[in-house]
């Protein structure tokens, strides 16, 4: 058997197991769509949304803060579902989905914590408060940093996929439990700074909606790229294994 045909055989096998590695029309479309959506969202945040009466300009960070927190949480719930599917079916593509979604979600939740802290600084006079929403984002940040560290901690691919799936489930179950614990904790103690109790004006609500849509599109675009990268890595490993088994 010639090298090329062997390689293509490996490639098709991995293609089935791992997923696509070539950029498809969807990848381009998602990239383009999220870029456009972001431009619109930016224009709305700075041009359309009214200036908040008490907080002033700094309040505009709210639109991206909420959107990134939402997308982070959404990404982790995808990891949770992918983890269950992986444990049930043991198919590599669910592992790829879970890992990609966790990494992308981690980037967004980090953004949520940083923007939340930036917002808290001028408005509440302190860069960190144990406000429930901010705290739960920080807890999620820690949980999924642990997830990513776990993924990097052993070379055994099949084993780490199982471990990560289990940890993805445990971590996700922790989120609502932490949420209730943090909220009770903060309400039993006197609450000095009450957070968003504010009703949103319709233009603000519209801007928030568009921001969330833009962030969700960006999440989808990044997720696809991350999955493609992982599939390409699988293909590379398989090809290396087939071509020069004695060296690996």
């Amino acid at each position: 058997m010639s090298v090329e045909s062997r390689e293509s055989q490996v490639a098709t096998r991995v293609y089935e197991v791992g997923g696509k590695t070539k950029a498809s029309g969807w990848d381009w479309a998602l990239g383009l769509l999220s870029s456009v959506a972001f431009l619109v969202a930016l224009a709305m945040v700075f041009g359309y949304a009214p200036r908040e009466a008490t907080m002033g300009e700094i309040q505009r960070i709210f639109y991206f803060h909420v959107a990134s927190a939402w997308v982070g949480f959404f990404g982790f719930s995808v990891t949770f579902v992918a983890g269950i599917l992986y444990l049930v079916r043991s198919q590599r593509r669910w592992d790829i989905l879970g890992l990609s979604s966790a990494e992308v979600g981690l980037a967004f939740i980090t953004m949520a914590v940083v923007t939340g802290s930036l917002w808290a600084g001028p408005v509440w006079g302190t860069y960190w408060t144990w406000e429930p929403r901010l705290t739960i984002s920080a807890v999620q940040l820690l949980l999924y940093v642990a997830y990513v560290m776990l993924r990097a901690s052993t070379a055994n691919e099949e084993r780490i996929a199982r471990f990560a799936a289990v940890y993805g489930i445990v971590a996700f179950v922790t989120v609502p439990l932490s949420w209730f614990a943090i909220r009770w904790w903060r309400t039993i103690h006197p609450e000095i700074v009450s957070s968003e109790g504010m009703g949103l004006a319709p233009p603000m609500r519209m801007t928030l909606f568009v921001s969330v849509a833009a962030f969700t599109l960006l999440y989808a675009a990044l997720l696809r790229q991350r999955m493609r990268l992982e599939s390409a890595r699988d293909r590379l490993t398989a090809a290396q294994g087939r071509l020069a088994p004695e060296e690996w």
Partner: peptide, 13 residues
């Protein structure tokens, strides 16, 4: 690293 963030609700409670 794995356990402490999962233990957050337990520790608070």
């Amino acid at each position: 690293i794995l356990a402490l963030p999962v233990l957050v609700p337990l520790l608070i409670a």
